[in-house]
Design a protein around this nucleic acid. Structure first.
Length: 280
DNA sequence: CTAGGATCCTGTCAGC
DNA sequence: TGCTGACAGGATCCTA
């Protein structure tokens, strides 16, 4: 689940909690979840928490970077005087840490911990040494706010034979869009997900970019998928999607624009939610 | 080169 | 209840 807004939520939350903290221990529970040498990060202090697309970039005081990619089911949980959790929403947001899904644990000098949990083991923490590049980061397209409508249209056209949904999921076309914001952006632009890129107009591409930005801005504003949305004041489980989603996971519900029924189908090999009446 | 499908791994849920 | 198969919010690898 973690897409750009969720990673941005993590970036903001962690910035307040781990800046200036020194890592004194790293425990690796699953070898494939930690790429690099533990000795490269022990003793180092966190100087900045950044983000590029869906990648979180934890910068260390010697110039190295801890790159975290949550993929499908990753989550980061900080436990100290305060607790912060964001990423793939599960009971681990509120449960005992570490859990059976904990793959990498970082202990700080003040006794607090940061846990990287990931039930499907697709995600990872990777040490980038000074000057070391990463293939994913190198290929990454522009952030949705750093690209003009015209540039976005040009980037899309590099994938003109495929569906518009597959094109915006391509991280080299635009950074940070995943299945949720692809469906939401296409709904906002009233463009059908299975349309071929070659048949999408310059104007529609502009609306699509605005739709993606709008959905992401709303999600960031409400705190993405995080502890604050997971448990409501009355103790029941909340759903952050309710706070901004118009089509995602709304199968069978009424389209807010035309009143027709939201359907679920398959596009680009992914579950796709859309309104067949007003998305053309 | 592009496009589409299989694949990594674990958990959950629907249907029988 | 227990089993089985489908599917899950990502990205890469392989094939055509």
């Amino acid at each position: 689940m973690p897409e750009l807004p969720e990673v941005e939520t993590i970036r903001r939350g962690l910035s307040e909690l781990v800046l200036g903290k020194k890592i004194v221990r790293v425990e690796v529970g699953n070898a494939g979840s930690f790429l690099g040498e533990v000795s490269d990060v022990v003793g180092r202090e966190i100087v900045e928490v950044g983000r590029m697309g869906k990648a979180l970039l934890i910068k260390l005081d010697d110039g190295k970077v801890l790159m975290v990619h949550l993929r499908m089911t990753g989550q980061l949980i900080y436990v100290g005087k305060e607790r912060f959790a964001a990423g793939h929403p599960t009971e681990d947001f509120v449960g005992e840490m570490p859990s059976r899904h904990t793959r990498v644990s970082f202990e700080f000098e003040d006794g607090s911990w940061l846990y990287f949990n990931d039930q499907r083991k697709f995600g990872f923490v990777k040490v980038l040494r000074v000057g070391e590049s990463d293939g994913f980061l190198d290929k990454l397209g522009s952030e949705p706010w750093d690209v003009s409508e015209e540039e976005f249209y040009e980037a899309l056209k590099r994938r003109k034979g495929t569906t518009i949904k597959a094109a915006i999921l391509d991280q080299s076309v635009i950074a940070g869009v995943g299945n949720i914001y692809a469906d939401e952006g296409l709904w906002a632009a009233a463009v059908a997900p299975m349309r071929r890129v070659g048949e999408v107009s310059r104007e529609e591409a502009g609306k699509l970019l605005m739709g993606i930005r709008g959905a992401m801005e709303k999600a960031i504003e409400v705190g993405g998928s995080s502890l604050q949305n997971y448990v409501k004041a009355d103790g029941t489980r909340g759903d952050y999607l309710d706070k901004f989603a118009m089509v995602f996971d709304k199968t069978g519900e009424k389209c807010a624009r035309c009143g027709d029924v939201i359907e679920k189908t398959r596009v680009a090999g992914r579950g796709t939610h859309w309104c067949p009446k007003c998305q053309r």
